[in-house]
Write a protein that binds this DNA or RNA. Structure first.
Length: 502
RNA sequence: GCGGAAGUAGCUCACCUGGUAGAGCGACAGCUUCCCAAGCUGUAGGUAGCGGGUUCGAGUCCCGUCUUCCGCUCCA
């Protein structure tokens, strides 16, 4: 499937044509890397969310959910490291078109000088650079690059653009009146939801009487200014994360990291997707907060890409919040340590994070479900586009179709819907030939089409058509609800009811 | 950010070397139809991305701008 760009384009078109995903503000030519979910897309997205939420909270004895605000105190992002790490000044070489982080460029030059026995000069350069970086003096940095005649490794020229700051965090003004102190009332739109969990760690632990190990789950929007963002909903400026931070005893991070790696993979597989579409990718170069990290990658039409991250975040976040807030972020553990015979006592918990992009999950689900089928026979050319969505995720579970729109058939169909609609999403359609209606339902992934015909009036049976096989069977109306409910609750696929006991 | 290509009805596209916009599918209304799209009739829908220029006249030529796609780059 790798790099099947035609298929990717087809999926994007299909998403738009059938009301799953529209470019944002399309009537104004759109807004780059921002998308809206339409009538069926929002249903599918919500079903994914519900499935995750249920798996991570209801089915886990020691995980609870929260819903933290998008706005957070600005110091949050200093403590988390995002202010420093998301603000790298960059510079482009106009000839090679190569972009460099300014600090990397200068450091590389300094290393070169050291190699040429000019240690003192190199030290001076670095010192000067750090002074300028601390002041955010971009013209000064450019001048420094020119003064030292630093050249691009590829073009060999020093034809540089201005130094520019790439703000990966969105900021906005807080409060209705502008402050006299510049920057005083700037708040960021959170670039990850995790910090909302960390700052509430003690609130939840105390009010929920949570004992370590325990987890806090959250679904919410996050915002990042991407430099290049042209990959449909794979990389968006406004996106939604489903994260869970699992708080554990220091020293146990390795086993819990392994545990959540396996648990999360199981969750993906529980939706019936072939395991060959998934693989783990271990991070060699670790982020500033992690002592182990991997991604679950999915084989998207654009190739294997990151779908979910599992990170062992150590005590980095809680420790920093403790330092910046001057509030204790510790847990008192009464359990007896078998090694010492004494209670574990006070400590800052370590954290294992599972973080999945909801929009990426949506893309993985829909690209896995999308299928163009050639149904031609020697007599007749025929084809269909079908979304083989897991029934539990499908926007509509059951369409009820009167074979003809007369003789009381529509009325019977309405009755069936009235009986079922409080249990799952139903859809009524009497227009066009039955075949067209089936195909329209295939295109949005409806797993069941129920057809009311003349026989229904005689014996209260209907035909039920299975989306994937297109096979039909005749069943009693009285059995309908149960059959559909069984299919969408997926008794055979629910493998994630794993209770954590230790 | 750079290079290339493209923007005409909801979708796919046509209009050749400038002369006041067209098809198929789709949608809607009706008819027909007892089970898998391309039966019948009718209706709606486009100031040709936007702005400017050349011209008697521009979708068609020129410039600008925006957007999208492909490649590179970047990021993770």
């Amino acid at each position: 499937m790798a790099n099947d760009s035609k298929k990717f384009q087809d999926i994007i078109s299909h998403c738009k044509e059938y009301g799953f995903i529209f470019p944002s503000s399309e009537i104004y030519d759109g807004l780059q890397a921002v998308y809206d979910y339409g009538q069926w897309g929002s249903e599918l997205k919500k079903n994914i969310k519900d499935y995750w939420w249920k798996s991570m909270t209801q089915l886990q004895e020691n995980i609870v959910g929260i819903d933290a605000a998008i706005f957070m105190h600005p110091t949050t992002w200093k403590a988390s490291g995002h202010v420093d790490n998301f603000n790298d000044p960059m510079i482009d070489n106009k000839d090679s078109k190569k972009r460099y982080r300014v600090d990397h460029l200068i450091e590389a030059h300094a290393e070169q000088m050291v190699a040429n026995n000019r240690q003192d000069e190199a030290d001076g350069l670095i010192a000067e650079m750090e002074k300028l970086l601390a002041k955010d003096d971009f013209p000064g940095l450019k001048k420094l690059i020119e003064t030292y005649n630093i050249k691009c490794g590829i073009s060999g020229t020093s034809n540089w653009t201005d130094v520019r700051q790439f703000n990966l965090m969105f900021s906005t003004e807080f409060g209705s009146s502008s402050s006299s102190e510049e920057g005083d009332n700037i708040v960021y739109l959170r670039p990850e939801t995790a910090q909302g969990i960390f700052v509430n760690f003690l609130n939840v632990q105390k009010t929920g009487r949570m004992k370590i190990p325990f987890g806090i789950a959250q679904i919410g929007k996050a915002f990042r200014n991407e430099i290049v963002a042209r990959q449909f909903i794979f990389r968006m400026r406004e996106f939604e994360q489903m994260e869970m931070q699992f708080f554990i005893r220091p020293g146990t991070q390795k086993e819990w990291y392994e545990h959540w790696k396996q648990e999360r993979l199981k969750w993906h597989l529980s939706l019936g997707t072939d395991s060959k579409n998934y693989r783990f990718h271990d991070h060699i170069k670790l982020a500033h907060y992690a002592d182990a990290a991997c991604d679950i990658e999915f084989d998207f039409p654009i190739g294997f890409k990151e779908l979910e991250g599992i990170h062992s975040r150590t005590d980095f976040d809680l420790k920093n919040h403790q330092e910046f807030s001057k509030k204790k972020m510790q847990y008192f553990d009464n359990d007896i340590d078998p090694a010492t015979g004494k209670a574990y006592g006070n400590y800052i918990p370590f954290v294992i994070e599972t973080s999945i992009g909801l929009d990426r999950m949506f893309l993985s689900v829909i690209s896995n479900a999308y299928e163009e089928q050639d149904l031609s026979t020697p007599e007749k050319q025929d084809s269909r586009v079908v979304l083989k969505l897991p029934p539990r995720l499908a926007p509509i579970k059951m369409a009820v179709l009167p074979l003809v729109k007369k003789d009381g058939l529509p009325e019977i169909a309405r009755q069936i819907i009235d009986d079922c609609k409080s249990h799952f999403h139903c859809f009524f359609e009497e227009k066009d030939t039955i075949g067209k209606r089936y195909r329209r339902m295939d295109a949005i992934g409806t797993p069941f089409c129920v057809t009311v015909d003349q026989q229904t009036k005689e014996d209260s049976t209907v035909t039920i058509r299975h989306r994937d096989s297109m096979q039909q069977e005749r069943i009693a109306i009285a059995d309908l609800k149960r059959i559909v409910l069984e299919a969408i609750s997926g008794t055979t696929t629910n493998t994630s009811n794993f209770l954590i006991t230790n």
